[in-house]
Amino acid sequence: MEMLQVIGISLIGAFFAMVLKEQKPNLSFLLVVFVGSSIFLFLVEKITAIVQTVERLAISSNVNMLYFATILKIIGIAYIAEFAAQITKDAGQASISTKIEFAGKIIILTMAIPILTAIIESVIQLVAS
């Protein structure tokens, strides 16, 4: 079972991070980064399956692929920003973590501008007609 594998890895990582924090805090931080990225690498195949399913649904329902790609990119940015913000918060740099979250929000907003303009244009067309 895969969940047990993830739990085992996380517990081993947490234990070693606790032990290493007494001796070498910087190596303990690197260990935490490694555990986080390896868990995501483990999950990548499942995420790929989910994304392919959603993509098939989008193709079959004739959604504009530009919007679909934008939404997918936004999900990716949200995930990376969350990951980096958690890691920097663990490293004790809460201010950098807040900046990462802020940058994620701004970049997501700029990527969503085409969708927003499309919505506003269609609303204007409805009102005008």
Partner: peptide
Amino acid sequence: MPIDVDLIFKIAGVGLIVAF
């Protein structure tokens, strides 16, 4: 892909040995 546990043990081992 499977998680390589070896690297976790490697990092923890290197850390402890270096501290020693």
